[in-house]
Design a protein around this nucleic acid. Sequence first.
DNA 1: AATATTTGACCATA
DNA 2: TATGGTCAAATATT
Length: 299
Amino acid sequence: MKKNTLCSENNDVSWKKKRRIIKELVQGQEAATQLKLLLQNPIGDTSLSAEELLGNVLTSFAETLSLLASNHSQEQPCRHDPSPSSADPSDDYSGESHNMKRSNLTPAKKVGRGCYKRRRSADTWTIVSLTADDNYTWRKYGQKQILSSIFPRSYFRCSRKYEEGCRAIKQVQKTQENPVMYETTYTGMHTCKSTPNSNNNVPRLLLNSQNHHHDSKVSNEKDYYPIISPLTPTVTQEHAKEDSPSDVGDHKLDPVWSDLKDFEPSIKPSINLVKNFGMDSVHFGTHDDDDDDEFQPPL
DNA sequence: AATATTTGACCATA
DNA sequence: TATGGTCAAATATT
């Protein structure tokens, strides 16, 4: 069914509006998180100043309140002509463009499809495994044929992105050398309650990782587990739906991963750490991209 | 009907 | 400008 169905107005808060509100809140949360990090580590490499971040937080509140206060019926122009480039931007990032402008600290979004700000590749790590499954719930948002491989790359975001503001994403593609294996590149930590199953199987080849904000020492390998939510203890297990795109299948992982559960957010993998677990392995590293900000558009 | 995926358009970045 | 990352309408699945 199409989203347009929601054109039927006067449900308390329309679906699109909810998404906008959530998005606003997520942005505010992200700004606040970044501000927190900045305050904890003033020499960190955040791209925005504390003032700017604070501004974003406040803007987020303002936007949210405005959305909640506004009249819904105006929010849902029915679209019966879905021409691609006239795509209604009220959704997502572009949503704010109607009457509210973000401060110039965070330039207003452009309108239209594909309008977004590409996130910087901080905090990424790559795993090669027989499976693309990690027992998190992911939502596929794209697939693309890329030049470097004959296999398409699939893009996933955490399915709890809008519920909990979890910003974890991953890219999965078959490896050319061995199409049975999947190379999964994770970006961002899970901040949602969703945690992998303890009887998880394990992706094992950690190929590469990049991390900006922390390079503290790590005491044991548990600390390297990159997938676990840093902010929430294991609560429920949202069993990951499989994420097998057309070319990205998934299999079960082994239990090795389960002892890595106690990952501490503050102890992030340091540079170029390589762990081997049997036939596969994983590799963390540091990506030195100056103004990495792993945050999504301030919008 | 709600939720997830597919797919081409659009945009940011190198 | 080419490439790849993201969006979102259309479509499929639950």
